[in-house]
Nucleic acid binder design. Structure first.
Lengths: 357, 357
DNA sequence: TCGCGGAATTGAAACGTTTCAATTTTTCGC
DNA sequence: GCGAAAAATTGAAACGTTTCAATTCCGCGA
C-alpha cells in the first residue's frame, strides 16, 4: 500500500540514500558487499523505483508517443508493431494515440505527450495541427513524421513513394489495354492522397491520354466512401473498365459494391487495390494491389527516432522514401468491351475458377 | 529549451507559486483578475506543466497499461480501439505492450508499468507470470483481466464464453449431418484454448458421439499451425468432412491449406472459423464463423477499470462473460459422402457461384 | 604510530508540482 | 471608520529520485 521508497531501502540496509541509489543502479564506486546488501534489502522489500521521480531529475522518461489516425486500420498495424518491437528492444515504452484524422484530437494528444515529457514522438499527422507541431520543434523534442509529409516543417520523415504507387497501378492497367480507368483517391490535404492521384495522372499523361473528370473521385480513405463512389461509377452511362482504389479500406468498400452489383472481376471490371494484406490472397478473386513495405516503414521511423533521441546535437532532418511494388494476382484482365451489358462466358472467370472448370 | 516552469509563470505574473498553481487548475479560491493574469502569462510563455512532477505529488498519472499478446492480431485490434476510445474520453492515456505470448516479456512489462506508476492495467495474460501479478494485486493497483481467466487470482475479469462458442460451431456442423468433425484448438494453458475445446467435446457428447483422437489437434493460435494441422488432417485415411478452427489466424492458415490442395468449400469440406472480420464476407466462399463481441469486450474491460480507478474502496471482483454468436455464411453444407474422391458437380459450388450459374 | 591517497560514503540540493496551515487582504454591517 | 468574518494569497513541506561536492574510511608504506 504505502509505497516503499529508496529511503526505506537505505534505512534497512544501514546506508545513506545516496549510496542506496548508486548501489541500485550499479555504480562502480560502491563496495561490493554494500551493493549486495542493498540489492538484497530492495528485493526483500519489493522495492519498485518511481519512474516519475527519476524522470524528473534525469529528464528522460524512456517513453515515446505514437500518433496515428486509426489503429483499427490494418495498414497501420504492422507499422505499430514494428515501432513497438524496436522500442522495446531499446528499453522504450510506447504511448498509443488514435487521432481519427481529427486535427483537434491530434493537437490535444500532442499536448498531453509534451506534458508527460515523452522522449520522442512518431507522428502520422493530419497536417492540420501545425502550431503545436511547430512548438514541438522549437522545444527540440525528437520528432519523426511518419507516412505523411508536412510541408513547411523540417523534421525527419519516413514515407512510401505514393506517386510511384499511383503510376505502377495505372501503367499496369494501361498495359492491359484499359482506357476507361477510374480512380478513387484520398483526401487532397494528405500528402498520401495527393501523391497517388498525381501518379495516376502522370501515367495517363505519359500514355497520351487526358483525364476524364467523372472517373476521378475523392474519397476519405474509409470503407464507405469506397463503396459509394464505386456504386456511382457503375451508374455512369459509360462506366470504367478498370478501377484503382488508393487505400485498403476503400478497396474493401469497392469490393463490397462490386459483389453487391454482381459485377465480375476481372471479367466485367479490373480492380487494383492498395496495401497488401495476406488475406487478400483469399478474396474472390485474389486481388492485385500496390503493396507498401509497412513493417519497414515503422521500423525506419523508429530507427530515426532512436537516433535523434540518442544524439547530443541534431543534424539536418532526414527524408526517407521507400518504394512500393505492384503485386499481381488475378483481379485484372484486358477489357472485353462488352460491359455493362453482361457478356458472361469464359472470359469472365477468375484464374481460380478457370483452373477448376 | 530550458523548460518554463510554474515558478517562471508565477514570477512574471507577480504572484506566488502556490497561487499560480491554484489559478492554473481553476481553484475557486483565487480572484478572477488574478486567474486571468496567470493564465495569460502561462499562455504567453507556452507553459507546459510537468505531468511527472504532478504525478509525484498527486499519485495519479492518468495513464493505463494495456498488455496483449499481439497487436497485429486482428482480433485484438478492435478491443484495443475500444479501450483507447474509452480511455481518451475519460482523460487517460494508454501504454501499449505486446507480450507475444511470452511470460518473460509479460512480467518485464508489468514491472515497467508499475515503475511508471500507471493508474491501472488491462491484461490479456499468458497465465504464466503469476508472481508479479500477485504483487500487483497486493499493491492494490487496479487490474482487469481481459479475454483470459487466471485461476487463483481474484480480479475483475471480462471474457467471452468459449465453451459456448465451441458448442455453437459443433452443434451446427452436427445438425448439417456431419459426423467426422475435426477441431484445431488452441493451447490448453490458455483458458480460451481449453474452453472452446470443451464446448466441442460437450456437443459431441450430447449427440451421443465419442471424440476421435486424430481429429483433435492442438495448435498455437498462429497461422502456421492452422495450415500444418489442416494438411495433416487432409492426409488422413478418413479425412474429416468438417473442420472447426478456433481462432482467426489458424482459420486463415486452414483456408490457405485447403486452397492449396484444391479442396472445395463447402463441397468437399465444411469449415467454421472463429472471430468475425468484415473481410470474411469477401473470402471465397464467405466464411461461417463464431463471432465474438470484440469491441464490447474491450469496452467492458476499460469500463471496469475506470470503475476501479475511481472507487475509494474496492468491492469484490466482478466477472463478466459475454456471449459469442454463430454467423452463418456459405462455408458449410451437409456432407456429400464422396470426399476424398472428387465428386464435383453443383453441390460443390458456394452460394455466390450458384447464384451466377 | 603516523600520514597519505584513493575508495567509499554521506548529505543536501535539485527536479516541478500540489497542498494546506498560516498570514494578509478585502468586504461588509454597523 | 471599526471590527469581524470571509476571501485571497503566501510559503514551505512533501512527493522519490539522482547527482556531486564534501567528508570519512581504510589499507599501506614509512
Amino acid at each position: 500500500m504505502a509505497m516503499v521508497t529508496i529511503k526505506d531501502v537505505a534505512r534497512k540496509a544501514g546506508v545513506s540514500v545516496g549510496t542506496a541509489s548508486q548501489a541500485l543502479r550499479g555504480s562502480a564506486s560502491v563496495r561490493d558487499t554494500t551493493r549486495r546488501r542493498v540489492l538484497q534489502v530492495a528485493q526483500r522489500l519489493r522495492y519498485q523505483p518511481s519512474a516519475l521521480a527519476r524522470g524528473l531529475v534525469t529528464r528522460r522518461t524512456h517513453t515515446v508517443g505514437l500518433l496515428i489516425s486509426d489503429i483499427a486500420n490494418p495498414f497501420f498495424i504492422r507499422a505499430v508493431r514494428a515501432i513497438e518491437d524496436l522500442a522495446q528492444e531499446n528499453g522504450y515504452t510506447v504511448i498509443l494515440c488514435n487521432t481519427d484524422e481529427d486535427p483537434a484530437k491530434e493537437a490535444q494528444y500532442l499536448r498531453v505527450l509534451m506534458e508527460k515529457r515523452v522522449d520522442g514522438i512518431v507522428l502520422a499527422t493530419t497536417a492540420e495541427a501545425l502550431s503545436i507541431i511547430r512548438d514541438i520543434r522549437r522545444r527540440r523534442v525528437p520528432l519523426v513524421l511518419f507516412d505523411r509529409e508536412l510541408p513547411g516543417v523540417a523534421a525527419d520523415t519516413v514515407k512510401v513513394d505514393g506517386e510511384m504507387g499511383g503510376r505502377l497501378a495505372t501503367e499496369y492497367l494501361l498495359s492491359l489495354g484499359h482506357r476507361r480507368i477510374a480512380i478513387i483517391h484520398g483526401p487532397l490535404v494528405r500528402s498520401t492522397g495527393r501523391e497517388r492521384l498525381r501518379g495516376y495522372l502522370r501515367a495517363l499523361e505519359a500514355a497520351g491520354m487526358r483525364p476524364v473528370q467523372e472517373y476521378i473521385r475523392e474519397g476519405n480513405f474509409k470503407q464507405d466512401s469506397g463503396r459509394d463512389h464505386t456504386r456511382r461509377l457503375l451508374d455512369l452511362a459509360a462506366p470504367p473498365t478498370a478501377l484503382f482504389c488508393t487505400n485498403n479500406l476503400m478497396t474493401v468498400g469497392a469490393l463490397q459494391a462490386l459483389h453487391e452489383r454482381g459485377v465480375r472481376i476481372p471479367g466485367d471490371l479490373s480492380l487494383v487495390g492498395y496495401d497488401d494484406m495476406e488475406w487478400w490472397t483469399l478474396t474472390h478473386p485474389p486481388l492485385t494491389t500496390v503493396g507498401q513495405p509497412v513493417y519497414d516503414l515503422g521500423r525506419e521511423a523508429m530507427r530515426l527516432l532512436l537516433l535523434q533521441m540518442g544524439a547530443e546535437r541534431r543534424g539536418r532532418p532526414q527524408r526517407m522514401v521507400l518504394k512500393p511494388e505492384l503485386i499481381i494476382r488475378s483481379s485484372c484482365a484486358p477489357p472485353t468491351g462488352s460491359f455493362p451489358r453482361r457478356a458472361g462466358g469464359r472470359g469472365s472467370l477468375s484464374r481460380r475458377e478457370r483452373a477448376r472448370g
